[in-house]
């Protein structure tokens, strides 16, 4: 911690109450990071269970403000993981229904709701945020928002969970951060003949990385060698993501528990069409309905941690596609490069 990353340092000082509340995390990421969080403005678009998890974690961390954007109503499926919306709010707007509990998580954070559709939001709207996190949208819409964000210099995350499977994509453009290089160095010994002891020493190093846009993922053909190689190396996660996104754009919805068997049939069809004889087993298709709480907690936890890294400029955000495999509980990163 302790090293200046850029010149426009947040000039805020933490209050005593903040120091006390955030004590355990300040001990991990330092005061400077906590001050940066204090100024961060975050947009969460899409208040599914995943949106709720990310919102919770971000609010707890002590950012400046969070806007919840969603034009959809609370549905029965939300009861599987959307804990910010009370049961009684069934049918009302998801962003508004989440406000009360979101605010109770941390009264020091400014939280607001917006019930408009993401599609109606233009460049001006996004300019008010440091990080934009979008879930539940089609690839076309994700691409549109990413392009706007890239123009504005706003950091963009696309993320989703289907059942127990999930991903995020990070589009951060040029991102500067500080990373601690940790080494063991020999310690000066007080007594002769003593075995050399080592101690940890960490040196902050400033780095910069370039993150390509969401289009690099969309442009990755399933038939390309690079895609095939990744499947071979890390399993069928990327293929599953591709199948689910195709399902969404084709059917204008996600697989539904109400039509479970029929949708499983559709999913198998898309899978076989994309990559015949793949290792994507039928079993993996059986857990893609609604959003399952523990899986959402995992993906939402990872996404929120990444947002915190971006805001605090501490540690390298993973580049750039994260996949969670519910069969093994592995969470891994694919590096999707621009061609």
């Amino acid at each position: 911690m302790g090293m200046e990353v850029d010149t426009n340092e947040p000039a805020v000082e933490l209050t005593e109450a903040e120091n006390e509340l955030y004590d355990r995390q300040i001990r991990l990421w330092g005061l400077e990071s906590q001050k940066r969080l204090r100024t961060a403005r975050i947009l969460i678009a899409g208040l599914s269970g995943l949106g709720a998890e990310i919102t919770k974690n971000i609010i707890l961390s002590g950012v400046n403000s969070v806007k919840l954007l969603d034009d959809k109503p609370v549905t029965e499926a939300d009861f599987c993981s959307q804990f910010l919306a009370a049961r009684e709010s069934l049918g009302s707007n998801r962003a508004e229904a989440s406000l009360l509990r979101a605010r109770a998580l941390n009264p020091m954070v400014d939280i607001s709701a917006d019930t408009q559709s993401l599609k109606e939001k233009t460049s001006e709207f996004f300019a008010d945020f440091d990080v934009v996190v979008v879930s539940g949208e089609t690839n076309e819409e994700l691409l549109r928002v990413d392009n706007i964000c890239r123009e504005l210099g706003v950091k963009f995350y696309a993320t989703d969970v289907w059942g127990m499977f999930g991903f995020y994509f990070a589009s951060l453009q040029k991102h500067k951060y500080v990373e601690d290089l940790v080494k063991y160095i020999p310690k000066a010994s007080t007594k002769p003949n003593e075995k050399t002891k080592y101690e940890l020493s960490s040196t902050p190093v400033q780095r910069e990385m370039e993150y390509p846009g969401y289009s690099t993922w969309l442009n990755l053909e399933t038939s390309s060698r690079s895609f095939q190689r990744k499947l071979k190396k890390s399993g069928p996660g990327l293929l599953l993501l591709n199948v689910l996104q195709k399902f969404r754009s084709t059917h204008k919805r996600d697989p539904s528990y109400k039509t479970r068997e029929a949708d499983l049939e559709l999913l198998r069809g898309i899978r076989d069409d994309q990559v015949p004889n793949s290792s994507l087993a039928d079993e993996a298709l059986g857990v893609l309905f609604a959003q399952i709480s523990p899986a959402v907690a995992i993906v939402g936890g990872v996404v929120a941690q990444e947002v915190i890294k971006v805001v605090t400029k501490l540690e390298a955000p993973h580049r750039n596609l994260f996949v969670f495999d519910p069969q093994t509980c592995a969470g891994y990163i694919e590096n999707i490069e621009a061609n």
Partner: peptide
């Protein structure tokens, strides 16, 4: 205080992820 009280730093995200894995394992 950290040293005298043996405080282990703790953050929401790691706990959320870990608890998620824990319940996935319970399944």
């Amino acid at each position: 205080k950290s040293m005298a009280g043996n405080i282990i730093p703790a953050i929401a995200t790691t706990n959320a992820i870990t608890a998620g894995i824990s319940v996935m394992r319970a399944f």
